[in-house]
Simulated scan of single mutants.
Amino acid sequence: MQYFMNIIGLSNKKMIKFGFLTLFSFLWFLGFSEDFAKWLALNKVIPSDYRYGDLYRMSNLAQFKVPLQKCNIPETTESNHTSLILLGDSFTENERIEKNHFKGLDNYQRFFITDTIRIKIDTTKRNILIIETVERHFRERFVKPYMNLQLVDNESDTGKIDGRSILERIIKGHIPYSAERHESVLFSSNFFLTFKEWKAWVNWHCFNRVDKNVMLSKDKKHILYYADAQSSGIHSSFDKISDNEVTKMVENLNLTYQHYKKLGFDEVYLTIAPNKTSILGTDLGKYNHLIDRIQQHSSLKMPFFDVYTPFKKSKKMLYDIGDTHWNCDGKQIWLDEVNEKL
């Protein structure tokens, strides 16, 4: 009898070990797979960690807990034989911008601006290229001409360059595990957010501390991203920029423009999405006016969509309350400019 009890005990221990192994493997997978985490949010298995904005997500300050605006997507418009390639930052990612936002497109492809991509264009159509970058990354991205997009003749040669599979990354030790993503999946419910908000309130009101990734404007009305709200640094809206550096970036823009025109694009445009700090946080320092210094430079040949000027003049709130990105009204300003050209 004791013998059988020992066997049962061993079996139970194995089952418990297997159970824990399965559980922790699943938890690890949540932090490992960005696609799976997105799938869980899209299918409402878990609430989206960004539903109140990226800045609220980092700070958990309750006064900025406002759901992101949901913008209407227009109906399809009649084609005008135009193909648009968009190399963009997070302001134009697929969850924010879709084909139907643009008028009369036959084809629309969007890639992240830092990716190196091979594509094939249809020379029978009007081919337009838009390069969109947020202001805080502009200086680093145009320290040289931007040539991440390559054209090929064969459809079979298209795609992202150096796109290694997950298995290859694991073999080479590049495991894309994210503890932040792991935490987001497990603790993004309103129940856990309540406790996070209590902690954030205590830190702010008792110790005058907020999350290291955010800053508040002096009037405390706006929450901003620390990278562009700090007093100095290449990403800061207040970092001093010499005229020589501005001239060099303009030269690189011109070389970028000439490069893609020679490749066969009929039109090539630039968009610099203003930092939220550059519009709503200028009470923190002296703005370096990077955008208008680039756009108004006498040597600039590359056409652009100017978002900074209408944003600065507007009395509307053009950014989501708890987010670094523009809201529906802000996005529409950019779309109206683009669609006027289309």
Rank of each mutant, 00 (worst) to 15 (best):
G163P: 03
L87E: 00
K220R: 14
L253I: 01
F265V: 09
M317P: 03
F207H: 12
I113W: 00
S314K: 12
T194G: 14
E93R: 13
N244E: 15
N327R: 07
E168I: 05
I272M: 06
R209N: 11
M15A: 14
R118S: 05
T247G: 14
R181Q: 05
Y308F: 00
L186Q: 10
A37R: 11
I46C: 13
S33A: 06
W204V: 05
D49W: 14
R126H: 15
Q109C: 07
L86W: 12
W198P: 02
V250K: 10
G322M: 00
T22C: 11
K70D: 10
L263P: 05
A200I: 08
Y3E: 06
V185W: 03
V185R: 02
V338R: 10
V185T: 07
Y287A: 09
Y3W: 07
H325V: 11
L27V: 11
E180C: 04
Q230L: 00
I131L: 13
H205N: 13
L61Y: 09
R293F: 08
G173R: 08
G163T: 02
W326G: 05
Y226G: 01
E75C: 04
M15Q: 11
F191T: 12
M5K: 14
N6L: 15
G9C: 02
L284V: 02
D292A: 05
N252C: 06
P310V: 07
Y225T: 00
H325E: 12
L193R: 12
W198S: 09
Y260S: 00
G163M: 06
F192C: 09
Y3V: 05
L224K: 07
K196N: 08
E197V: 13
H259T: 13
S90T: 04
R136H: 06
S217V: 11
I97F: 00
R293E: 06
I223H: 08
D306Y: 05
G285C: 11
K261D: 03
E267H: 07
V210S: 12
K313Q: 15
E168T: 14
I291C: 03
R57K: 14
V134R: 01
F142D: 13
M317C: 05
Y226D: 01
Q69I: 02
I121T: 07
K212G: 02
M15K: 14
T158Y: 08
M147V: 11
S217C: 07
Y269I: 04
Q150D: 13
S11W: 12
G264M: 09
I97M: 00
D292P: 10
F102R: 02
N213V: 02
D219G: 06
L280T: 08
K312E: 03
Q332Y: 11
R126K: 15
E180F: 11
K199G: 03
I161K: 12
L68T: 04
K248R: 12
T124R: 09
F138W: 01
E251Y: 06
L284D: 05
K262P: 04
L224S: 13
N94T: 11
